[in-house]
Design a protein around this nucleic acid. Sequence first.
RNA 1: GCGGCGGUGGCGGAACGGUAGACGCGAGGCCCUCAAAAGGCCUUGUCCGACAGGGCGUGUGGGUUCGAAUCCCACCCGCCGCACCA
Length: 813
Amino acid sequence: DPAEGRGPRSRTAAVTGAPGPEEPDTYVLEMLPYPSGEPHIGHLKCYSLGDAIAHYCRRRGARVLHPMGYDAFGLPAENHAIRTGVHPRVSTAESIASFQEQFRSWGISIDWSRELATSEPSYYRWTQWIFLELFRAGLAYRSEAAVKWCPNDQTVLANEQVSADGHCERCGAVVEIRQLEQWLLRITDYAERLLSDLDGIDWPDHVKTMQRNWIGRSEGAEVTFRCEELDVDYPVFTTRPDTLFGATFFVMAPEHPDVLRLAEGGPDEAAVREYVNHALTESSEERGRAEKQKTGVPLGRFVTNPVNGERIPMYVADYVLMEYGTGAIMAVPAHDERDHAFAEAFGLPIRRVIAPADEPDAGPEGLPYTGDGVIVGSHSDFDGLPNREALGAIVQWLDREGKGHASVNYRLRDWLISRQRYWGCPIPIVYCDRCGAVPVPEDELPVELPEIDDYMPKGRSPLAAAEDWVNARCPECDGPARRETDTMDTFVDSSWYFLRYCDARNERAAWDPATTREWMPVDQYIGGVEHAILHLMYARFFTKALADLGHLDFQEPFTALFTQGMVTKDGAKMSKSRGNVVSPASIVDRVGADTARCYILFVGPPEQDADWSDEGVDGVFRFLGRLWRLAAEVAERPGGTHGPIASPRSPEGDDLALARKTHWAIDKVGSDLRRFSFNTAIAAVMELLNACSRLREQAELQTLRFAVASAASLLFPFAPHVSSDIYERLTGERVWDQPWPEADEALLETEVYELVCQVNGKVRDRVQARTDAPAQELLALCLAAPNVRAHVDGREIVKEVVIPGKLVNLVVR
RNA sequence: GCGGCGGUGGCGGAACGGUAGACGCGAGGCCCUCAAAAGGCCUUGUCCGACAGGGCGUGUGGGUUCGAAUCCCACCCGCCGCACCA
């Protein structure tokens, strides 16, 4: 069967193709799969996309790096193990075997010699090495902090793994807050570079936008409010220093370390204590509800507003977030909706300091007013100025007085990487009573994950139970020490795998810089949008940090990014619970890998979501069958396999038409591939086949053979098995050894074309015109067209528009 | 609320400001067959019309243009991301 997904050539070596001195090295990379169960349709789409590009690049003469690996540590595997009782090492290995088998059956051209799994000691040894590099550079640090804790998975989560409404991304449980000592990576040091370097990379706008939003850069000022009684300065961040004169109270987050001290001895001390305790236990979901009534408690203390010396009361309230800015705010109820709501609830003064420009005497009505206007009721130096102008002047004044300065604030938080889980990369640190947290010496890496039977989560890492493993010697003083028992977030593993592929078998280093210089950065990265923030931000951070440490000489890991859309069934995400899962294996069994791969690319633009249709699959299956049968029929004709494949020299009539269609397809498929328009590229091959079928009796054998072989050659990146079979039947050659075909410019142009004749912009006729006919002749042709005359006769022609090669438009009255 | 993306036949989707609906699915008719499957041929936006041809058509309303699915303005709807971010 031609469309059967089997074939002798399903394993095209990846880094083949003669490396010519002028040909570039190209790194084509699809995001590595998380091996859980079997590959799903999304994997088929991703790797079909990447393989098409890899093939195209190779046949254009590039050396192509196209590797594969498995993101094999992590929660899903461990949760699966907990459910089934099968050790994650075993279930992960089984799953990897299944992925390998299917990737081979799909015929994805992978360089298997570089295959890796992040759970192998030979890989995570270097993950640990990178951690220690970051530790030495001060980019990995321990900190006790309020952290997000999932009570179901029994682990700490990164901010990024908690959904907007406070649920665990993995299991859906409501997340709690706990105070724990954790390892963090100082990604915030890179906030500005992560933001500005987005400008230089070829990524989809929506991904860049998501990253920009996540980094959340705000320009403003840091302003110091002083608590005279305690002799403490409290800086706040504000984007609106122009409203400083309207600050009538001051609010701290419940997590602010000074809250209890401030309330001590005050009239509301007990109430503050209770409020803080309640806020800390409340889920981020409950706390985050925007429509929630504003609550809070006065601290019984005052701070001084630096611009006017006014004493304003301090409050604790949960609408202020510890993790943004300084955990304290100046409240300007006249010009901030949240502060306004709080002031209303607590009967606090509301003072307008900005008025709309056309209404400088505006009263208290219309508040809160968050728009721009002129400064009022503030200070004689600023009153009457447009607020944006005054903003700069006020900041300068603060700076001169030493009461504040211009400041930039980011929403991005440091990356919390500790996980109290078993199935992850051990953190290579030992704790010594005398020396503290000490890095494991490099020559002792990897710190291997011990084999343990009980990996059930218990609120502390399961590794803590492996006493023999935990007990260690301090590398500095040789005294007794204990190993860190937390493991790393899986996203650490996948933040550098693209580097390891460059030198995957190196046992002495994570990579030889010569190899990353050769291949990196990745020329084309491909994956789902779901990684728009997490993985892609972390990988960029690692790249920059490693470059700063002298291990890399580039700043961005992925020059170009392509994000594929989801594959749905009946309009819904495929899921076991819905029972609408389409398994790639069953499709490949039924119609073959070529059909499956072509269909997933033909169904629509790859960046968009696509709905799976079995009928659509059948249509592609029929197309491949028609192509194969025609090729077989041509090959069986006398002379059907002889001589080189070549465009006919001076074709006429039907031969010319078929040769033209062939060159049209060559041109179209190439340009479509370059713009990721796979669906139209496949449609062009379909059109070529339709032309071949129509002209199979009329055209000369060699013209037909050229057309059919070209169709196969153009289809090879999408359907490698049938295409290479057809090509070899017709030519005796291997299609992957053939350079990508070039269209003959002369045959892309015709000497006559159909001139569209419009009257008042409406098509009224079509006539044959010579390609080189001058405008006057085209105009005459149009005027002579019968149906044009019917619409023009008796009217006055007021304008003639002649677009040679296209149309003539006559404007009549 | 802020930001991003999108809205085209019965369906998936094509269309450098220049023939709207390529290609495929589905549907209808026909051929092959004892019959079916497979395969092949034809039709298929919609309305009027036997044909020729014509009217209407790319979410809505305006605008720019000889000409707009495409560019601009306003709005409606859908999807995605962020959201008490000071």
